Amino acid sequence: MSWTDERVELLKKLWAEGLSASQIASELGGITRNAVIGKVHRLGLSGRGKTTAQQPKARKPRTTNTATPARPRPTRSVGNTALKADYEPAPSPVVVARPSPVHELEIPPEERATILSLNEHRCKWPIGDPTREDFYFCGRHKEAGKPYCDHHASVAYQPVGDRRRDRRPNKD
């Protein structure tokens, strides 16, 4: 399909009347909505007339009727609502897990490791602030296949049962 002068003039007329691109495409025949939008854009036809369907309808003034009680607003729901209750449950209490105090090992300076002295047999637990000069790694002997010594592995890894227990609300 090519854009003849007659079809372009009809497009301009229908666009000015406020027809949608889909309506114009069906009126012209053999053309898509996107082709109409593209041609309108290339022609620079931005101003449009308003059809009666596009004009906002006048609203009736709101009246308050005291005879009928106001309906309760539905609760806002997110996600699958097929099995949700009709009421909003009370919020559950916030549980803050208190970590057990970690007793840091005192590592003698001769056992401390730097990034250059770490190998597969030394604990890689960082101690201190990496931006400061006194930063070091634990450096104690560790088992093969683990990144940390036994003490730091007990700090880094919690058994699954302990994590579940810590999430339950305190009944104090």
Score class of each variant (00 low, 15 high):
residue 1 M to R: 03
residue 2 S to C: 06
residue 3 W to Y: 06
residue 4 T to C: 03
residue 7 R to H: 13
residue 11 L to V: 00
residue 12 K to C: 10
residue 12 K to A: 09
residue 13 K to T: 13
residue 16 A to R: 01
residue 19 L to S: 10
residue 23 Q to I: 01
residue 23 Q to R: 04
residue 26 S to I: 15
residue 27 E to G: 13
residue 28 L to R: 00
residue 28 L to N: 04
residue 29 G to W: 01
residue 29 G to E: 07
residue 30 G to F: 05
residue 30 G to R: 02
residue 32 T to K: 08
residue 33 R to Y: 05
residue 36 V to I: 14
residue 36 V to A: 10
residue 38 G to H: 04
residue 39 K to S: 00
residue 41 H to L: 11
residue 42 R to Q: 11
residue 43 L to D: 08
residue 45 L to F: 13
residue 46 S to Q: 14
residue 48 R to S: 15
residue 49 G to T: 05
residue 49 G to M: 01
residue 50 K to T: 15
residue 50 K to F: 14
residue 51 T to G: 06
residue 53 A to V: 11
residue 53 A to Y: 14
residue 53 A to K: 13
residue 56 P to Y: 05
residue 56 P to N: 07
residue 57 K to W: 14
residue 58 A to V: 15
residue 59 R to Y: 09
residue 59 R to K: 14
residue 60 K to R: 15
residue 61 P to N: 11
residue 65 N to W: 12
residue 68 T to I: 14
residue 72 P to G: 08
residue 74 P to R: 06
residue 75 T to L: 03
residue 76 R to I: 14
residue 76 R to M: 12
residue 77 S to G: 10
residue 78 V to K: 10
residue 81 T to I: 11
residue 81 T to D: 14
residue 82 A to M: 00
residue 85 A to M: 07
residue 86 D to T: 08
residue 88 E to D: 11
residue 90 A to W: 09
residue 93 P to Y: 05
residue 94 V to I: 11
residue 94 V to C: 05
residue 94 V to P: 08
residue 95 V to G: 09
residue 98 R to W: 12
residue 99 P to I: 02
residue 100 S to R: 15
residue 100 S to F: 12
residue 100 S to Q: 15
residue 101 P to V: 02
residue 102 V to K: 12
residue 103 H to N: 04
residue 109 P to F: 07
residue 109 P to Q: 08
residue 110 E to S: 05
residue 110 E to F: 11
residue 113 A to G: 01
residue 113 A to E: 02
residue 115 I to L: 09
residue 116 L to F: 01
residue 118 L to K: 02
residue 119 N to M: 11
residue 120 E to S: 07
residue 120 E to W: 06
residue 122 R to N: 02
residue 124 K to V: 02
residue 128 G to S: 04
residue 131 T to C: 03
residue 132 R to S: 03
residue 137 F to G: 04
residue 137 F to I: 00
residue 139 G to R: 07
residue 141 H to Y: 02
residue 144 A to C: 00
residue 144 A to K: 00
residue 144 A to P: 08
residue 145 G to W: 13
residue 145 G to T: 08
residue 146 K to R: 08
residue 148 Y to F: 07
residue 149 C to F: 08
residue 149 C to E: 00
residue 153 A to F: 00
residue 156 A to H: 07
residue 156 A to Y: 09
residue 156 A to D: 06
residue 157 Y to L: 09
residue 157 Y to D: 05
residue 157 Y to A: 06
residue 159 P to T: 06
residue 160 V to F: 04
residue 160 V to A: 07
residue 163 R to I: 10
residue 163 R to D: 00
residue 165 R to M: 13
residue 166 D to S: 09
residue 167 R to P: 00
residue 169 P to F: 01
residue 170 N to W: 00
residue 171 K to Y: 07
residue 172 D to A: 11
